[in-house]
Design a protein around this nucleic acid. Sequence first.
DNA 1: TACAATTTGATAACAAAATAACAAAATGGA
DNA 2: TCCATTTTGTTATTTTGTTATCAAATTGTA
Lengths: 216, 216
Amino acid sequence: MSSKIPMSIMLYKRLNSYLHYMKQLPLGDSDNISSTVIAAALGVNNVQVRKDLAIASDGGKPRVGHMTKDLIADLEHFLGYDNCSNAVLVGAGNMGNTLLSYDNLEQYGIKIVAAFDCEPDLIGTAVGNVKILDVERMADICRRLDVNIGIVAVPPLHAQEVCEELISGGIRAVWNFAPVNLSVPETVTVKNEDMATSLAILRKQLAENIEHFGFV
Amino acid sequence: MSSKIPMSIMLYKRLNSYLHYMKQLPLGDSDNISSTVIAAALGVNNVQVRKDLAIASDGGKPRVGHMTKDLIADLEHFLGYDNCSNAVLVGAGNMGNTLLSYDNLEQYGIKIVAAFDCEPDLIGTAVGNVKILDVERMADICRRLDVNIGIVAVPPLHAQEVCEELISGGIRAVWNFAPVNLSVPETVTVKNEDMATSLAILRKQLAENIEHFGFV
DNA sequence: TACAATTTGATAACAAAATAACAAAATGGA
DNA sequence: TCCATTTTGTTATTTTGTTATCAAATTGTA
């Protein structure tokens, strides 16, 4: 377990995929797993896998590899999936609802403890066991619940305003689904969930792919 | 406009953010914009901005910068937002519905022309003006419509199966919302919309941030 | 016990991306 | 017209990330 943690997105994506791979492995097939096997299965360079695992785990034994169970635990720990953080959600529209009903969210280390909207019709209703509250009370409730993650799922026009309100409530990390650049003080972290960019890359790759392989 | 296009995710994220910045700019303030200004506004290195713009645009004039209108058009073109591709969606659950009702999708170059599900109750219904069809007919319809982008928004357990069905229908690019590793032939491109990874990174940054600035 | 096979982890070579430094072009004003 | 200023675009340099190579460790087996 290294002390200097690289922050490369790619590293996290890869670790996440190793984890998925191992979890979907037929149980009891073998107690151990090696970087070589993971690399082969996922079509990644095996040195890469070894280095990645070295970052996130205590390392395995030569000739044996890693104890699968332990490695899974290590990756889950490194990725933070093993200890849940509380979060609040703003915007109970389509995306907000999807997040609220996304069971797996807790499995990935986030628990939505409160949701907010400005729409009077929505306030007071609930999705699952999360009540939707008036956004006016947001900052206050954030402070009271001592939450430091906020999820922004409101229309682009209101995103900045909502973000500032969250920050005034003590939020330190914003997961932003609105297609805008949020400006925040340096004490706050923003992660944009950037569908548009994903799409752009997907289509570029598609174009390259077709150029390379032609229409099959 | 360079001929050798780098495929770095970060480049695309940055270009996308420049675009958002310019679009939200008060109209008529000035016809021109410079890398320096963009860099300052977004807190990015100005050389980075210049290089990025050089990749995506024809370049501006010294001392003047870029014509904002043209630069926006260039970025939109580079990111593919200006010409729509057709796509099909599989899985009309929560996420599927969100995507179907996400107006901005077309603005980002994707138009969902058909949606599929296996749930008899859903088949025949419509979201917006997209009808939900029986997944049995998927491959066939994909071929008929000559679509080559497929969006997978089904539960993890069915994702691989659905993916293969899409490929058999001629799909060449898969936008995957299911938290699994899809295995596909090399003629097919996959882009994982990887919420878990995003969350992991967000929380790591949050932790670092708090370590750095303490609780404010 | 000695040897072959496999895997790890460390070091080194390589590639790509980010940053820095600088020269050339365009503009405005003295 | 000439000079200072701003901005671009090009060329280095540095940093980061990826891939290759190799020695040491562990296991199974002859």
